[in-house]
Simulated scan of single mutants.
Amino acid sequence: MIHLPVVRQGPARALGIRLGAAISLILGAVAVIYADRDGYRDVNEDGLTLLDCFYYAVVSLSTTGYGDITPVTEAARLVNVLIITPARVLFLIILVGTTLEVLTEQYRRNLREARWRHKLKDHIIICGYGTKGRAAVSALLEGGLDKHRIVVIENDESTVRQAVSAGLVAIEGSATRSAVLNQADVKGAKAVIIATDSDDASVLITLTVRQLTGGQVRIVAAVRESENLPLLKQSGAHHVIVSSATAGRLLGLTTTAPPLIDVVEDLLTPGQGMALAMRSAKRDEVGSNPRQLDTLVVALIRRGKVLPLGGAATVEIETGDMLVYIHDDRDGADERPLTV
């Protein structure tokens, strides 16, 4: 089921509320009629039973009115004028209003979903909206990605509601199933980020995405244990991040070289000072050594591969190269942050 980021009352709940109101209205009318049953005349002239009161209330509120039971006393007729007739109008409003609202809501939902699918292109699919998934979404939004280009797949209903309340499109279901991934239009996606809490699920999702897309969609996965990294690579993941090993290295740096942690946090936290950015090589930079540029270039990406800048080897910039560099995140320059 696709959950678009608009919080509204579900048709089933709205129908249940109105059905309860209609039943309550009928029971109220029955109580009034039964209390004044001596003021009514039945064609059988044997008096009104409780069943007769139910019958009269239903046919009166539904405007059927067979006429076999009629109010004859002034009190009974006054009750019909002041209670039964307004109840009849309210009963019709409930029935007609419920039908119109359910049909309108269903049409509106189908229309919004059709528009969403029509605009969906080069989107990012996030499999899992836990701690890692939410952090990935935050990084994408900070990198300038439109919120409407992010689709979350989550199996937990409460977590799905969190994603929808954050303004994201969420699909409730398991990302290991082909049908759920097809709902997210995995073939038209730009990338799939796998941020589940289970390495087994990550492997299965990777295999499923690779089977559906033929390896044309970039797959980025996170695993807990480093021993599962080769398995994710073999399954088709283009990039694999080992969360436990990364956390362990950061903990080690905190102990042996605390200032390095401050630098890493500064680079990873937007708006704090230093930040990593990536841009295309300019025409006048072609043929130059990246170390000679005014900006601090830390990596050179050529045809999807990272070229080392350290050592004695000299690397010259070529047309089409991407430069990864460090810039001041507060200077407002025209720079594109590193995104998926």
Results as ranks from 00 to 15, higher is better:
residue 93 I to T: 08
residue 93 I to W: 07
residue 94 I to C: 06
residue 94 I to K: 14
residue 96 V to R: 10
residue 97 G to P: 14
residue 98 T to F: 06
residue 99 T to Y: 12
residue 102 V to S: 13
residue 103 L to A: 15
residue 104 T to W: 13
residue 105 E to F: 11
residue 107 Y to E: 08
residue 107 Y to N: 12
residue 110 N to C: 06
residue 110 N to T: 01
residue 114 A to Q: 14
residue 117 R to H: 02
residue 120 L to I: 07
residue 120 L to Q: 11
residue 121 K to G: 10
residue 121 K to I: 10
residue 122 D to N: 10
residue 124 I to K: 01
residue 124 I to H: 02
residue 125 I to D: 00
residue 125 I to P: 04
residue 126 I to G: 03
residue 127 C to R: 05
residue 128 G to A: 05
residue 130 G to D: 05
residue 131 T to R: 12
residue 133 G to D: 05
residue 133 G to V: 00
residue 134 R to K: 07
residue 134 R to T: 01
residue 134 R to Y: 01
residue 135 A to G: 10
residue 136 A to L: 01
residue 141 L to R: 06
residue 144 G to I: 12
residue 145 L to Y: 05
residue 147 K to C: 12
residue 150 I to Y: 08
residue 152 V to Y: 09
residue 152 V to I: 14
residue 154 E to Y: 01
residue 155 N to V: 08
residue 157 E to A: 04
residue 158 S to E: 08
residue 159 T to H: 09
residue 160 V to W: 03
residue 162 Q to L: 07
residue 162 Q to F: 02
residue 163 A to N: 12
residue 164 V to H: 00
residue 164 V to P: 13
residue 165 S to Q: 11
residue 167 G to V: 04
residue 169 V to A: 09
residue 170 A to R: 01
residue 170 A to S: 10
residue 170 A to Y: 05
residue 171 I to L: 09
residue 172 E to V: 01
residue 173 G to V: 11
residue 177 R to P: 02
residue 179 A to N: 10
